[in-house]
């Protein structure tokens, strides 16, 4: 169980994490989602005591990370950037970590086999591929057989086989009753791996809900309708809970009505339809809608990027609100 309470981190003027509170429960995989620069990594670094919070606290099973006698046996962490000396072999890297706790060499061999690095354990970690590096990071996280695991973007740079391996591993670990917090900026990945979601943007909590609820909320149907008499049809369809967006002269995007009902209304009025397509918003779209206002670095046309620090709410092309609080943010 991880309890984050009113966590705030400021770097000078810049607020990376702001009054963040949430709880990560054991037994399930909790996804920690947010766009790049939203404060996920900073939050995770504060959980394991690498960064000091400006305000607030994090408790793991009721204790501060720093107060654990054997931190590696309580919390296993895989942080975003590589945390390995490139000149040292995987085996010696893990051995040095194990020795700080008196964990026996046997366990080092076990975790190496567990993550499938048996063949390269004596090779310099600097020569590892991104995927092998992630496996080594996971081996380090599992070294102390911890009850809590914190992984920052573990699937980054992995091939499909590696992604599936991590997904299964995380679910197995959670099924054993461990607390598992995994960050990602990909909603689709989290929908497959996690059971619960904590979504943040600009360092603030946006959502704390189950994946099932999120998916249900995201599946609001939009029906794509094409008709030569679109404006007429639009007037017929308009009702209380219906929103219609015109997209060109002959296209309507209707939400709030099932496609069958739209077809009936059109037929009754004798309006010909050339296209009637129900579309389900993808999870990614739903996630983007949720975090849209909180995305810090929008891509877009050059004119939409007024990079003056301190200009908090310049309306940008496409209606996206652009937040430019200066560079140097840490995700």
């Amino acid at each position: 169980m991880i309890e984050v309470q009113g966590l705030t981190k400021r770097y000078g003027e810049k607020v990376a994490v702001s009054e963040l509170s949430f709880t990560v429960r054991p037994g399930i995989v909790t996804g920690f989602l947010g766009p790049n620069g939203s404060g996920k990594s900073t939050t995770m670094r504060m959980i394991v005591g690498l960064d000091q919070p400006s305000e607030g606290s994090v408790l793991i099973n009721g204790q501060r990370y720093r107060d654990f006698r054997a931190p590696l046996c309580e919390v296993g962490a895989l942080l975003e950037a590589r945390s390995v000396h490139t000149g040292r072999s995987a085996y010696n890297h893990l051995l040095a970590l194990a020795q700080t706790h008196g964990i026996p060499r046997r366990r080092v061999g076990d975790v190496i086999e567990l993550v499938g690095l048996g063949g390269v354990a004596r090779k310099r970690a600097g020569g590892f591929s991104l995927g092998m590096g992630q496996r080594l990071g996971i081996a380090a996280a599992l070294l102390g057989d911890p009850g809590t695991l914190i992984l920052d973007e573990p699937v980054n740079g992995l091939d499909p086989e590696g992604i599936r391996w991590i997904r299964t591993l995380l679910q197995d670990l959670a099924a054993q009753g461990r607390t598992v917090l995994v960050s990602s900026h990909l909603m689709s990945e989290m929908a497959l791996t996690a059971e619960h979601l904590v979504v943040i943007g600009q360092g603030r909590l946006i959502a704390d809900m189950s994946v099932a609820d999120f998916v249900a909320g995201a599946s609001e149907n939009v029906v794509h309708v094409r008709s030569p008499r679109a404006p007429e049809l639009r007037d017929l369809l308009l009702a209380a809970d219906v929103t219609i967006r015109a997209d060109g002269a002959d296209v309507l995007e209707v939400s709030g009505l099932p496609s069958s009902r739209i077809g009936e209304i059109a037929a009754a009025a004798g309006i010909a339809l050339s296209e009637l397509t129900p579309r389900q918003a993808s999870l990614e779209e739903a996630f983007m809608a949720l975090t849209h206002d909180a995305v810090e670095y929008h891509g877009g046309s050059a004119s939409a990027l007024p990079h003056q620090p301190g200009d908090g709410s310049a309306p940008a092309a496409g209606g996206a609100r652009l937040e430019t609080h200066g560079a140097g943010a840490r995700s």
């Binding site: 054997a70 008196g102 964990i103 076990d110 670990l173 054993q176």
Partner: peptide, 23 residues
């Protein structure tokens, strides 16, 4: 592929048995 059945002693036992900790 690897499964977690070989992850070692059940959760928590490793710590309790051996008196692991930073010195």
């Amino acid at each position: 592929m690897t499964t977690l059945t070989d992850v070692g002693p059940a959760r928590g036992e490793l710590t309790a048995q051996a008196g692991y900790g930073v010195t």
